[in-house]
Design a protein around this nucleic acid. Structure first.
Lengths: 161, 161
DNA sequence: GCAGAGGTACTCGGATACGCGCTGTCCGAGTAAATTGGG
DNA sequence: CCCAATTTACTCGGACAGCGCGTATCCGAGTACCTCTGC
C-alpha cells in the first residue's frame, strides 16, 4: 500500500499557495518551477485539489490557482481526500459469508458487522482523526518559526507585494 | 490508496487457523474451499504469512499450514506487515529541497525534518498503533460470544478431534 | 510378524503471464488583458 | 482624450498513451506416508 505521489505534492502546493498574497493567483507552471516537478503532471494533481474545493481556479491571463479557504481551515485530511478520493483503504468483501464459512455461520453472526472489518476501520478512523486534527495553518506557523527566511523569500517569489 | 486484497484474506485465514487443533495442519486448498476463493492466489497470500513468520508450513501428506504463534499474540499489524510489507504508506521525497524552493531555504530549515512528513507520519503512527493494539485473539473471543456455533462447526470442519 | 527399502501421492515454493490504476503528456475551450480604431 | 470592439495571448480542463504493481496461475522440489518384499 503506497500513497499517491500527488498527496505529497498537493500538501506542499497548498502550503506554497498560502504564501501568495490574497487576490493573487499562482499558475501551475510557476508551482512546477518552484518545486522542480513535471509541469503537466503537477497540473493534473492541482486540478484534483480544485475539484475537491480546496483551491479556486481562474483562467486567462493573470489567472492561476489560489486557496479557496483560509489555510487555517485546511486539514491534511482534506488534501488526502481531494487527491486520492474518499474511499476507505480497507474494503471488506465479506468473505466470511462465502463458501463453507458462509454456510456454517448462523443468523446472529451474519447480521452483525464483520469483526475484522470493525478492527481495520477502527485503525483507519484513528488515522483519519489524526489527519483531520492537523491543519496546514499549524504547519505553516511552525515553519515560520523554524525558518522565517523561507516564508519571506517565497512570498516575494510568488509576486506578493 | 487501496489496501491489498490479500490483507483481508490473511486476517480471515489466521482467524480460521486458530480453530484448528494444535498440531493439525490445514492445507491451502482447504482454506480456499472454506472461503470460496481462488486456490492458487490464496495460496500465494498464505505464503506471505509464512515468510512473515505468522504461520508455519509443513510439506508432504498431512502437511499444510498452522499458526506459528498463539493467536493471542498475533496483532492486526502483524498481518498487514506480512502481506504488504513494512514500508510506510506516505513517502517523503523532499521536494522542498528541489527547484526554487530548495534554493530559498536556509540551513536551519534544511536540517530539520520536513514538517509535512512529520504530520503524515504522525497519522500513520496512530494507525499502526491502533492495529498493533488489537490481537486476533480478542477478535476470536468476541466472535465466540456472538456466534459460538460458527466456531464449533468450523473446528469440526477443519478436522479437529 | 517385523523391518527396511522403494514407490507414490500429496503439499509447499518460486518463477511466470495478465490487467487495472497510477504516472505522465498533449491539445482544445474559455477568458481577461492589451490593442487599435473611431468618436 | 475616452470608449468600445477586436485581437491576442495566456490559463485551465478534459481526453489520450505508458508503465509498474497487484492479480492470477502454473509447474517443479521436497517430504511423509504407504506398500511390498525379504528375513
Amino acid at each position: 500500500m503506497r500513497m499517491n505521489q500527488g498527496v505529497e505534492w498537493g500538501l506542499h502546493v497548498c502550503l506554497a499557495l498560502s504564501w501568495a498574497a490574497p487576490g493573487v493567483s499562482v499558475t501551475a507552471d510557476q508551482l512546477a518551477e518552484y518545486f522542480d516537478l513535471p509541469k503537466p503532471y503537477l497540473h493534473k494533481q492541482i486540478r484534483s485539489l480544485a475539484r475537491g474545493g480546496l483551491v479556486a481556479s481562474a483562467t486567462g491571463p493573470r489567472g492561476g490557482y489560489a486557496l479557496a479557504r483560509p489555510v487555517e481551515t485546511i486539514t491534511l485530511m482534506d488534501v488526502v481526500t481531494a487527491i486520492q478520493g474518499p474511499d476507505p483503504a480497507f474494503l471488506c468483501t465479506e468473505i466470511r459469508h462465502r463458501g463453507v464459512s458462509g454456510r456454517l455461520s448462523d443468523e446472529r453472526s451474519s447480521d452483525a458487522r464483520c469483526l475484522i472489518e470493525q478492527g481495520m476501520l477502527r485503525a483507519e478512523m484513528a488515522w483519519r482523526r489524526e489527519l483531520a486534527a492537523q491543519t496546514l495553518g499549524q504547519i505553516r506557523d511552525q515553519l515560520d518559526d523554524v525558518s522565517p527566511a523561507l516564508a519571506r523569500h517565497s512570498r516575494r517569489w510568488f509576486g506578493s507585494p
